[in-house]
Each structure stands twice: as C-alpha cells, then as structure tokens.
C-alpha cells in the first residue's frame, strides 16, 4: 500500500478527530537511558546529555532561565540535546538556514558566553548575579559582546529564546498556562 492510499485508509472520520480535539496531550519527548521522557522529566531524573557536555548543559539552562524563567526546569537542555541527535532536528535553528553543524552552533555559543563572562566578571555565567546576567543577555540581544567568538550573539539569543519558549509554552501544558485552547487534531506517535 502506498503512502497516500495508506493515509486514506488510516484517515479517521472528522467526527473522531473532532472528538479528540482538546483532549489530546501532544508532547515533546526525548530519548534517554530511562526511555522516552518529557524534557522536564529527563532533567528531573538526571538523564545524562549525549551531545552537549554537562557544563554546556548547565550554561544552556542558566541562559534559558534568564530568557524565560522556568525553561531550565522545563528541560531546555535535554530538549536541545536530544534534538541534536536527530537527522532532521525540530529546532527553530533549522529555519535560520545555518549551514554548519547545529551542535557546533550551540557549543560555540555556550562556550563564547562562558568566555565573555570569565573575561568580564572573572567567573562563570552560572555564578553571575541576576542583574549581571540580565545585562549581558540584553547586550547579546543587540550585538556581539567583547570577547564573543561564537555565532552572532543576537542570533544565538534569538534561537535559545525560542528554544526556551518551545519547551515551556509549546506543549498543551504550556498553552494551558496561557489560557489558550490547544485543540489538537492528532496526537504525536510517541508516548510520554
């Protein structure tokens, strides 16, 4: 059976689809040593990262937390890390026509953030005071800070900010936090 014929055969009636609207929990999941988990649960269970190293993961969480408080607990590092293993990642970075390896984009950006923090404050980005973090991130949103050597800082800001929103608000639970009806047609193939 071909794809289109199969799709016709598998097509559910509109009534069935309507019945499912608003009742489904469309998820994003990550593959971990503990099986498929949501990014938040993967983080809570301490699932090791597979593409980013632990320090990069911590920096990504710290940056995500500045960009959207709650993004760290929602599992931004595990979401990004898992997507970097996939042949056709579902990261917003894809839309920016970045032509080199996606993992390099993240690694170079995170290392650059650490480098700037060390050069400017003689300490890790993780250890900065909230006001220092906010000021540095605001600068990143507009230009490359001095000593920045990664991808363009405003681009890096844009991508990580969107990753944070994806993982925090891009799910039925996230929509619910905003009071927006999710109204799913179809559930994803993966389980929680």
């Amino acid at each position: 059976m071909t794809g289109a014929e199969d799709s016709l055969a598998r097509e559910q009636s509109r009534r069935e689809l309507l019945a499912r609207m608003g009742t489904g929990l469309v998820a994003i999941t990550v593959d971990t040593a503990f099986g498929q988990l949501t990014p938040a649960r993967a983080r809570a269970r301490g699932a090791p990262l597979r593409n980013l190293d632990a320090a990069e993961g911590r920096t990504l969480e710290a940056l995500g937390e500045v960009l959207l408080p709650g993004a760290a607990e929602a599992g931004i590092a595990h979401f990004v890390d898992d997507q970097l293993s996939r042949e056709n990642p579902m990261l917003l970075l894809k839309y920016l026509d970045f032509t080199t390896a996606y993992a390099d984009f993240y690694k170079q950006g995170l290392r650059s953030l650490e480098r700037v923090s060390q050069a400017r404050f003689q300490t890790s980005f993780l250890q900065l005071q909230p006001g220092q973090k906010t000021a540095l991130v605001r600068e990143m949103s507009q230009k490359d800070p001095a000593a920045w050597t990664g991808p363009p800082a405003p681009l890096f800001f844009f991508v990580i900010r969107n990753d944070a929103v994806d993982v925090y608000y891009g799910t039925p639970q996230g929509f619910e936090k905003l009071g927006i009806p999710y109204m799913a047609h179809i559930l994803p193939p993966q389980k929680w």
């Binding site: 799709s7 559910q12 994003i28 579902m90 894809k94 799913a184 994803p188």
Partner: peptide, 13 residues
C-alpha cells in the same frame, strides 16, 4: 500520510 500531521509547531518543523 495524513496521520503524521501532528498538531504542534515543534513537530511541524
């Protein structure tokens, strides 16, 4: 197939 069109802006990528 139609059944692959998951309602999600993340999955849509």
């Amino acid at each position: 197939a139609m059944g692959d069109l998951v309602s999600s802006q993340i999955w849509s990528r």
